[in-house]
Amino acid sequence: MIMFRDPSEIPADFGRTVAAIGKFDGVHSGHRAVFRRAQQDAARIGAKTVAVTFDRNPLSVLRPDRCPDDLVSVERKIELLSACGLDAVLVLTFDEQLASRTAEDFAQAILVDALHVATVLVGRDFRFGSGGKGTPALLAELGARSDFTVDVIEDVFLEGTDRRVSSSWVRELLAAGDVALAGAVLGRPVSVRGEVVHGLKRGRELGFPTANLPALLDEMVPADGVYAGRLVDHTTGLAHPAAISVGTNPTFDDVLQRQVEAHAIDSPGLDLYGHDATVEFTHRLRGMTAFESMDALVAGIASDVAQARILLGLSEPDPANSPAE
């Protein structure tokens, strides 16, 4: 996938395009339905597919007081868009200058002059241009003058529910720790990625060594608690079933920032320091608990690992592969 950071970077001979416009925060299953529609439209006319998105949530400029946390970083969003099989992405810098452009100027300069759009795909609540005056209806009027059509994509609903798929719903689910349903809405496991860093090594002392990720991650972290999932080591290409802790570890008072720690089940002696790793969350086990003693903490962790083992479909542990070192 080709990435453009400015319309001026798009070659004059790039050809006709089918463009989907949106924030695409989280690149959830609803977004991917739009991209599949774009690919179908493009295949019929031999055009390229392009996602037009922004380097930040427009609300961070227009209404900072109402701007929610991003589900993913811009870099992660681009990675997820690439996995959708699009030909290109145009990441626009959303600043005061872009916010002040009229809807007509936005359509002409970006969609017509730069992208040579044949079809534009937007949601029914899509707004663009200064003051949000641009609507799908206005876009269709502009398209009639400039030789492009507009597809207004209807809401996508998660099967078995009456709620539309949205980034807001994913945020709610992550805040509640419901990673299973959040994963269904996203169409992929909830995950965070980062370089494994040194922690306090307390898990190793307790017999359950963990891979710790840094405080700043590429995706929104679910609510404090204990989860089952996978630890994917991109450095080696190996994936390990894992019991995962998120929070400040309230049994102790020396952890000041929320941490994501993953214990690779049945992998004693694993050294991941400095490795690029993803932690995937598939099941929530419990909330975060302050234990009254070290013995109670060790018993609690052992119970968490046993429950994670069941949820992940693992066989009983081999005594020779005890996590204690």
Rank of each mutant, 00 (worst) to 15 (best):
I2D: 13
M3S: 13
D6T: 14
P7A: 14
E9Y: 04
A20Q: 07
I21H: 03
K23R: 10
F24S: 04
G26M: 04
G26Q: 04
G26C: 03
V27D: 01
G30M: 10
A43W: 07
T53R: 06
D55C: 11
R56V: 07
N57R: 02
P64K: 02
R66K: 13
C67H: 08
S73W: 11
E75V: 01
R76C: 15
R76E: 15
R76T: 15
R76M: 14
L80K: 01
S82H: 14
A83M: 11
A83I: 06
C84R: 04
G85A: 07
L86G: 07
D87Y: 05
L90C: 05
T102Y: 11
F106P: 12
F106R: 13
Q108M: 12
I110S: 06
L111R: 05
D113F: 08
D113K: 01
V117N: 04
T119W: 09
V122N: 00
G123R: 05
K133N: 12
G134Q: 11
G134H: 11
G134N: 10
L138Q: 14
G143H: 02
G143W: 04
R145K: 10
S146M: 12
D147V: 11
D147H: 15
F148S: 03
V150N: 04
V150M: 05
V152W: 01
I153A: 05
I153H: 02
E159F: 06
T161R: 09
R163G: 06
S168C: 12
W169A: 14
L174E: 03
A175F: 08
A175I: 07
D178I: 08
V179Q: 13
V192P: 09
V192M: 02
V192R: 04
V197M: 12
L200F: 13
G203D: 01
G203Q: 05
E205F: 04
T210H: 05
N212I: 00
L213V: 07
D218A: 05
M220W: 07
M220V: 07
Y227Q: 09
G229L: 03
L231V: 04
V232M: 03
V232T: 02
V232S: 03
A242L: 03
I244Y: 08
G247V: 02
T248M: 10
Q257P: 05
E261F: 00
A262Q: 00
A264Q: 13
I265M: 01
S267A: 09
G269Y: 03
D271V: 00
Y273K: 00
A277W: 04
A277R: 06
H283K: 10
T289Q: 14
A290W: 08
E292R: 01
M294S: 10
I301R: 12
S303I: 05
A308C: 03
P319T: 10
A320Y: 07
N321D: 12
S322N: 14
